[in-house]
Amino acid sequence: MADRGRLARRTGRTLPAGLALLLCAAGCATPGGGRTTFHDPNMDFSLARSVAVLPFANLTTTAKAEERVRDVFMTMLQATGALYVLPPGEVARGVSRTSLPNPAAPTAEEVVRLARNLDVDVVITGSVLEYGEVRSASATANVVSVSAQMLEGQTGRVVWSSSATRGGIDAGKRIFGGGGEPMNVVTVKAVKDLLDRLFE
């Protein structure tokens, strides 16, 4: 009986404290602070029929990471059936003909010239921010972080921008260990997240 009273007193103290902490945390959050996607409200995305995916920038230490992510991105984008994705050789020809100094980060004028040259409605650029294995104590896992932007071919302005991260070590892996998923699977998931955000 005495035990039950002690338990009730303890619960009565911890529950309000927990609620107060939760309210504080919610108060610290800013509106839109967790968002990672920008959609231009003035852009009609259904009008975009063809796209040129430019070579991605590689900000990681893994060689060719940008090519791998771009390959998966192009294949999955084409698989949606929403847009016609130009073959990479054709994009390379356009890049060469328009003499883009840095195809991974073109200026608005360069985007307009390239889109006209390749006869595409939009151009997509991207960056691979993280690609490889992460370790924490005995746990290892693959992680991919990628961002992409869509630029309108007529004006060169950004109409969509988003980023996605997949993989890494969560609490479960930290406690129980494990090797995580293969790089290809993590990459496919990250790209799927990006495309979901594009078409949402």
Binding site: R68, T75, Q78, P182, N184, V188
Partner: peptide, 24 residues
């Protein structure tokens, strides 16, 4: 192994196939 294959239809002048294969 991981590899990618693309295909172009020369009559339609279009990319018609793109795939990424991966296996262990």
């Amino acid at each position: 192994i991981e590899f990618l294959v693309r295909g172009i239809d020369t009559a339609r002048r279009q990319a018609i196939w793109s795939s990424v294969s991966h296996g262990r």
